[in-house]
Design a protein around this nucleic acid. Structure first.
Length: 633
RNA sequence: GCCAAUGUGGCUCAGGGGUAGAGCAAUUCACUCGUAAUGAAUAGGUCGUGGGUUCGAUUCCCACCAUUGGCUCCA
């Protein structure tokens, strides 16, 4: 969009926007830039947001024209487009979307200028109250005392809005309504569920098409589709939601990752533990899980017995922490024992709400490289740094680091659900420590308020799936609370008893989720070292089978995962299917190869490598495997 | 959990109140093949599950289950 750079000269308060078209473009209203000349550029985030925000107003206008009784909530721009929340009886159907789009086209054609005006609070309230816009009235009421209350008017439609917007509705040359979804008013599940319409818009049709094509391409990488097609995993109705079956191919990847992770952790001073998958309620009571996390746990037995102290009650573990602490508690500890770096490839069980599950990304049983570093306070910085370094090393090795973002997840003292343990003082102390360490390390992070664990702040390493939805891949948490709850202490140098700090950390994070992201990142072409089938040998006809199997065995002996396609099919078909099944290396065997004891090798990434002996082939492949080479797909 | 959409052989999909169809895949046979689909034949579905309406339901209604997109929650 470099050609679309336009000047803007625009007004203060009630001033109408005066369009001033430059060569190719249009211009944008900036209420706050009185007399200032600025450029519009769709590549600029703010300009793009304004553009999408105006589109959301057009959406609202269209909806109000068709269903005047509909109440408006909010309608901001988001990363790839915009949405608007409506309160309409019965919601919207897909046919309705079409209807709305048609009306929106009319509004664009009408080329209505967006005019900004302000009203004093009482007038603003009566303005919206007269129109029956209860949600808007609530919004205005909640604005701070000194807030400027502004409106934007376009033709027959006026919305409460801080702006800014583009010049006129005629500028929205290309848009599309993408989907309908439910969303709680103000994001609170206790409030009414409204109907949200998502859409996107662009300055021209070509860009819109590009965007939609990108979405189509993303769908092809979707682990939930590709992972099932390639038989990494499957699900079964009668086993249950969020309980995927990891098939051999997926299990191989996870096994390979797990072995590597455990080895690396061991080389960095971690000790492996194996602790029970479930425990009595008593354990979780000490940790606070029983009070703060019970909804997320699978508690066994009758619900009625759960709180009956005379009855034994077990629950599957949602976290490993309280189990691993028992290792520390097993005997008296000295400051010399610290840091104690415990790690476990841990199965966890969390009773997620039914609507939360998603492929391998959000499941009810998962496997995580979960570690607890029990440390002296003076070791906090060094050990935290070690955890971060470990995580970055692992993510970098598998190729996910570059797409990660960091989130400093903090508590919200005002959380209404009594989510957090501990005192404000303890929280401030832990958060200050983490903030200091992150700043020292120069980590660039966003701050997530109310994203902390119930026992402490977290550094979350976030990753986005092909559709842009973000989840946590790795987490490192500082905990100054739980050690005390469990009576964990060590004898310090001076003989005094001290309470350790604990760092909760994952190194590679959840294997199921990581597998999902790897499938998406590599579009199924996982790096050779973790791929299940590393090479497929393709004999041309059955006279070549013996040599093909001989070759296969020779490669296996060298630690390469090789198979033979011994079906009675033509070579073209075998090659096609090896590609569809994302096998990186193929080796063709015909008369020539049998005669000179070679094979004709191709690699997905390096093309035809020509004729090679077993040893040459193994050398090439082992080099790629040992170096954990990753390709861009 | 909430809002909505979807659910037809392994996969992609068509159909529709009178008890189901295509392509690919699978199986068998023939072909013995040189870098992205050889041909023929065969088999495979109580149309997600359970109720209801009806002479009759896969089709209409209800509930449940699962999948998908959001919301809320979260590794």
């Amino acid at each position: 969009m470099s050609g679309t750079r336009i000047a803007c000269n625009l007004g203060g308060t009630v001033q109408p926007c005066i369009p001033k078209y430059w060569e190719h473009g249009f211009f944008i209203a900036r209420k706050f830039m009185k007399g200032d000349k600025t450029m519009f550029d769709f590549n600029n985030e703010q300009d793009r947001k304004n553009f999408r925000h105006t589109t959301s107003h057009i959406l609202a206008q269209a909806v109000k024209r068709i269903w005047p009784e509909t109440k408006l909530a909010i309608g901001p721009a988001i990363d790839d487009g915009f949405y608007y929340d409506f309160d309409k009886e019965g919601g919207f159907s897909n046919d309705d979307l079409k209807l709305i789009e048609d009306e929106m086209k009319k509004i664009v054609k009408e080329d209505l200028p967006l005019e900004r005006f302000e009203l004093p609070r009482d007038e603003a309230i009566s303005f919206m109250a007269e129109r029956g816009e209860d949600y808007k009235v609530e919004l205005i009421n909640d604005l701070p005392e000194d807030a400027v209350i502004s409106f934007y008017k376009q033709g027959d439609f006026t919305d409460l809005c801080a702006g800014p917007h583009v010049e006129s509705t005629g500028m929205i040359k290309a848009f599309k309504l993408i989907s309908v979804a439910g969303a709680y008013w103000r994001g609170n599940e206790k409030n009414k569920m409204l109907t949200r319409i998502y859409g996107t818009s662009y300055p021209d049709k070509g860009m819109l098409k590009e965007h939609l094509d990108r979405l189509e391409e993303a769908k092809k990488r979707d682990h939930n589709k590709l992972g099932r097609e390639l038989e990494y995993f499957t699900t079964v109705d009668y086993i249950g939601q969020g309980l995927p079956i990891i098939c051999p191919k997926g299990a191989r990847v996870i096994q390979t990752l797990q072995r590597w992770v455990e080895d690396v952790e061991q080389s960095r001073g971690c000790q492996l533990t194996m602790t029970p998958y479930f425990a009595k309620r008593d354990l979780y009571k000490i940790s606070g899980h029983w009070d703060h996390y019970r909804d997320g746990m699978f508690v066994m037995g009758d619900k009625a017995d759960q709180d009956d102290e005379t009855k034994e009650c077990f629950a599957l573990r949602p976290m490993t922490c309280p189990f691993q602490y028992q290792v520390f508690l097993n005997r008296q500890r000295s400051y010399r024992d610290l840091p104690m770096r415990l790690t476990e490839t841990s199965k966890l069980f969390r009773n997620e709400d039914s609507g939360e599950m998603h492929g391998l990304i959000r499941v009810r049983q998962f496997t995580i490289s979960e570690g607890h570093y029990i440390i002296r306070p003076d070791q906090l910085e060094e050990e935290f740094k070690e955890c971060l370094d470990l995580a970055k090393y692992m993510l970098d090795t598998v190729g996910l680091l570059d797409d990660c973002t960091f989130r400093f997840s903090q508590w919200d003292p005002a959380n209404p659900k009594n989510k957090y343990e501990g005192t404000a003082e303890q929280w401030e102390k832990a958060q200050d420590a983490m903030g200091r360490i992150l700043d020292d390390l120069g980590v660039k992070y966003d701050i997530g308020i109310d994203e902390a664990a119930f026992y402490g702040p977290k550094l979350d390493i976030q990753y986005k799936n092909v559709f842009g939805k973000e989840d946590t891949l790795v987490t490192i948490q500082i905990d100054m609370l739980l050690a005390e709850k469990y009576g964990m202490e060590y004898v310090d140098r001076d003989g005094s008893r001290q309470i350790p700090y604990i760092i909760h950390r994952t190194s590679l994070g959840c294997y199921e989720r990581t597998l999902a992201y790897l499938i998406e990142k590599y579009a199924g072409w996982l790096p050779l070292w973790m791929a299940d089938e590393q090479i497929r040998i393709l004999p041309i006809s059955d006279s070549h089978y013996d040599y093909a199997f001989e070759l296969c065995d020779a490669l296996k002996k060298k630690g390469i995962r090789a198979t033979v396609d011994d079906r009675s099919e033509k070579l073209g078909k075998k090659i096609r299917e090896a590609n569809l099944e994302k096998v990186i290396y193929t080796a063709v065997i015909g008369d020539q190869e049998v005669a000179d004891r070679t094979c004709a090798v191709s690699s997905r990434f390096d093309g035809k490598l020509g004729s090679m002996s077993v040893d040459e082939l193994a050398e090439v492949m082992l080099k790629e495997i040992l170096n954990k080479v990753r390709h861009n797909v």
